[in-house]
Amino acid sequence: MAWVNAVVQGILLGGLYALFACGLSIVFGVMRIVNLAHGDFAVLAAFLAYSVADATGLGPFWAGVIVIPVLAAVGYLLQRVLLQRSLGVGPLATLLATFGLSVIIQNVLLQTYSADARALDIGRLASASLRISGQLSISYLALITFVLAVVVLVGLQLYLSRTRTGRMLRASSDDPEAARLVGADSRHLYGIATSIAFATVALAGVMFAMRSSFDPSIGPTRLIFAFEAVVIGGLGSLWGTLVGGMVLGLAQTVAGQFDPALTLLAGHVIFLAVLAFRPQGLIPARST
């Protein structure tokens, strides 16, 4: 029964990873760049939610509702001010600039909040769970996170396929120049893609901060998990990202069942195995 529990927890954890990953996937799809500070922005969102909750007395959920649009705006601005410029400089510039950004965010958070681990206090919900049997119980929070992840992915999918801007984002991902020829303002589109990425990663950061403690240094690990979910699932496919997140979560919880020290390693090994034997990912794009 402990195994069943591990599997269920792993799948639910995968939802969180997919939430971390979908922004990475969209930005890479549209702009062909990876924001190395992706994970750090999630941590930044968690700290902001912490401060908002602290200052206003609002619950963490409401603090998240405030923080997410703020991060979306930050994303749009960051794209217009910094990333757009770096795109014009050369292929290395964005990576280096976002890496510098990652170092800046980590250390600014360190200065502001110290290295102490913190958590978003959600009261009883943290321990409340749905008991299915003696050994198997599903935490409400994990369930909520998973459902949120699926809702976000479905929403994104609908946005990309049904709206005018969404279609143009896909077109621009296929061929940026041809997209400009039909009227795409690439800078604005890229800004939208970045703000979607920031909003989703902020949501992921806040959800993460409710279930476990966080400190300024954990951003890079979030980036790595998100990246692994994207590659395992297959580049450029949102459903692939969800599957990738679930595979990663499963690998971690099941291996953790054997030996807690194996948790991280197992996730990485799955990632490397996919890279070695199925580099296109489990669910490559264009299978819809």
Binding site: R167, A171, D174, D175, E177, A178, A179, L181
Partner: peptide, 8 residues
């Protein structure tokens, strides 16, 4: 070269 969007 047409330049259609292949995934659309």
């Amino acid at each position: 070269g047409r330049r259609l969007f292949p995934s659309l």
